[in-house]
Computed example of a mutant assay.
Amino acid sequence: MNEPIKKIAVLTSGGDAPGMNAAIRAVVRACTYYRVECVGVYRGYQGLIEGDFETLNARHVSNIISKGGTILKSARSAEFRTEEGRFKAHKHLIENGIGALVLIGGDGTFTGGLKFIEEFNFPLVGIPGTIDNDIYGTDNTIGYDTALNTVVEAIDKIRDTASSHNRLFFVEVMGRDAGFIALNSGIGAGAEEILIPEKNLGLDRLVESLNKSKEKGKTSSIVVVSEGDKIGKNVFELGDYITEHFPNYDIRVSVLGHMQRGGSPSCYDRVLASRLGVAAVEALLDRTTGVMVGITNNKVSTVGLNKAIKMNNDIDPELLKVAEITSI
């Protein structure tokens, strides 16, 4: 990194998250501000391997801050997991005079970035873009706030029909390995129970809780289930089990699925993405590499990519207590 960086590339990888476009916009405009050329890489690491590049300026990213998804597209790349694939990707970067890379994505994206640093010592910085909020080193990831609002809005509507028909709804939300979406949306939507991977409630406890709700006169209930919860093989199996114990309930299962990824990003996610996009470019220009930029106590911070991948954010025990108390 002795030579000054004259060209920075940016890509999005992994699952899309609302606010990724805002981050792309911030990277491009920060490059313009600091008089550095910016190159967009289409389709993540696969585009890097194929040299699918386009020079971007401030006007290219006009009016994208409000759009969900990612204008640079995202794709899984089995080829990038091979030495040959990474060699091709590095060759395209060098041939195009690109001196540094900004990665927007989650732990899989950062794992690929670490490998790239190990093999080629190529300067890069990560920006956490994932709705699961499961990346260590930042209080919030881009897309998490929007996903929460989407889930709460959906549960509010489900509760209307649950109340009208004395129904028990199991609402599955994303979170294969982390329960942040389920816990926070469950509290925000007033769920009777919240099932998350980090805390195995167990079938007996769930049945006991639903019994208590019925004894207290509740005629309908909402149970928010993180997709990674360990009680049943899946939310439908869990619904079948509860049907056996509560024959008077009309059981319904609703899987919110990929609707949680879409939609216009919230103001919070737009601001977060803008701050982190600028911070990523500034870090690279300051000769900082191998880190992820995040937000800690409302201040921009950095953490090594290896820590961001290997370490976990813990569920706040206060939130678990709040969920228990407010579900009475």
Rank of each mutant, 00 (worst) to 15 (best):
A182W: 00
I181K: 11
A189C: 15
V255C: 11
E227Y: 05
F236E: 07
G188Y: 10
E198V: 06
K233P: 05
E208I: 01
K230C: 11
L256G: 02
T243R: 12
M259G: 04
G257T: 07
S226Q: 09
I194W: 05
I231V: 15
E244W: 00
V224H: 07
I242C: 06
V253H: 04
K218V: 03
R252L: 01
D204T: 11
S226V: 01
P197D: 14
G228P: 00
I242A: 11
S185T: 08
V253M: 07
R205G: 08
I242L: 15
V235N: 06
A182M: 00
D250P: 00
S226N: 04
S221V: 00
S213L: 10
L210F: 06
F246V: 03
L238C: 04
S254Y: 01
G217A: 08
I242Y: 02
V225D: 12
S185A: 15
F246K: 04
H245K: 14
D240G: 01
E227H: 05
P247C: 05
V255Q: 08
N184L: 12
F246S: 09
K230V: 11
I181P: 04
N248H: 06
G179A: 10
P247M: 02
N184Y: 12
G257A: 08
T219A: 03
R205C: 05
K212Q: 12
V224T: 11
I242G: 05
A182K: 03
E227N: 08
G232W: 01
V224M: 03
F180L: 02
S185E: 09
L256S: 06
H245T: 00
I187L: 06
I181S: 00
E198T: 05
Y241T: 12
L183T: 01
E198I: 04
N184I: 04
H245A: 03
A189N: 11
A189L: 13
L201S: 08
E215Q: 10
E227W: 03
F246D: 07
A182S: 14
D229W: 00
L206M: 13
D204R: 11
D204Y: 02
V207R: 14
K230S: 14
H258G: 10
S213Q: 08
E208D: 13
T219P: 00
L195Q: 15
K216S: 11
S226E: 06
V253Y: 06
K230Q: 15
D177R: 14
G190H: 07
A191W: 12
